[in-house]
C-alpha cells in the first residue's frame, strides 16, 4: 500500500505523457485508456478516473489531443481522443526530457562506489 502511494506521487507529473503515449498508438476513449495504462504497467499502476478526465481536459485545451464522438448504437456515447501533430511533438520532447532527467536524477540520488572514495 505504502509503495503504491509513493509511486503514484512519482508518476503524477507524467500522466499527460503517459496518455499521449497511449494515444500515439491509436485513438482511444476514456475507459480503454485506463485499461491500456494498467496493461502497460502489468497491473502495477491504475490511473483513477478523476485524474484521467483532468488530464484529458488539460491536454485538449492545450491542443495536444483532439476529441470526437464515436457512434455507439446503445447506451452512452463514447468520446474518442486522437493525438494531434503538436501532441506528437510534445510527446517526443517529453520522452527526451525523461531520458535526460532519469540519468541526471540517477546520478544525484544513487551513491556510486566511485563517489564514496
Amino acid at each position: 500500500m505504502k509503495e503504491q502511494t509513493i509511486s503514484s506521487e512519482l508518476i503524477r507529473g507524467h500522466i499527460d505523457t503517459i496518455i499521449l503515449r497511449i494515444l500515439d498508438e491509436g485513438d482511444n476513449y476514456g475507459y480503454e485508456i485506463i485499461k491500456a495504462i494498467s496493461l502497460a504497467s502489468q497491473g502495477e499502476y491504475e490511473l483513477k478516473e478523476p485524474s484521467l478526465y483532468t488530464s484529458l481536459k488539460r491536454l485538449e485545451a492545450g491542443g495536444l489531443i483532439a476529441s470526437y464522438w464515436g457512434d455507439q448504437s446503445q447506451g452512452g456515447r463514447r468520446k474518442y481522443y486522437r493525438i494531434t501533430a503538436a501532441g506528437q511533438t510534445a510527446y517526443h520532447k517529453a520522452v527526451a526530457d525523461w531520458h535526460y532527467a532519469k540519468q541526471l536524477i540517477g546520478k544525484l540520488i544513487e551513491r556510486s562506489t566511485a563517489a564514496d572514495e
Binding site: Y29, G30, Y31, E49, Y53, G75, G76, R77, R78, K79
Partner: peptide, 14 residues
C-alpha cells in the same frame, strides 16, 4: 452535457 455523456459512456464500458 458533454462531460456527463463522456463519464456515463465510460462507466457503461467499465
Amino acid at each position: 452535457r458533454d462531460m456527463k455523456e463522456e463519464i456515463l459512456g465510460n462507466l457503461e464500458a467499465k
